[in-house]
Amino acid sequence: MLPLLTFLTLLLLGYLSGQWLERRHYRSIIEREQQLQNLPHSNSRDLLLPMQDITRVELLAGSVVISIDYFKRVVAILRSLVGGPVASYETLIDRARREAILRLKQQCPDACQLINIRIETSAIHNAAGNGIGSVELLAYGTAIYGRVQTATTAATASVLAASLQSITH
């Protein structure tokens, strides 16, 4: 009797708190994503925008560990018995990844661009075994500070380069 009551209480508690926390987290993610969406970012090694002069280059990392609630864990265990997409874990990964990237971006609001972003899982504990069900994500990248080459400066630069080329030839 007691294990059943504990189980149901945890289930209800997990459901209510999990839903509330998830909704709040998603609201905050969307809000911050809109605030930070103007920062050019890519996971490619090349400069996204040509730079006129680079004042500083910095390696930054943002990480997050998010745990799953009791209700979702139970649903996920049931899901893994029948197969198919485990939606309760999908929101977890989605939230963790977006949060990690946001924390990375929040560290360099003044940067001109953020390049070579990599996303990795950092394992704190072996969650697949008997550990706590959680997802640990690390996002890192290079922030570039300075002045972006505008269209006019780019034009003069190309004219200069062309004239330079004509001189050498």
Binding site: Y15, F71, K72, V75, P85, A87, S88, E90, T91, I93, D94
Partner: peptide, 8 residues
């Protein structure tokens, strides 16, 4: 990135 499912 999230499947439409009703966990309940």
């Amino acid at each position: 990135n999230v499947s439409r499912q009703r966990p309940l």
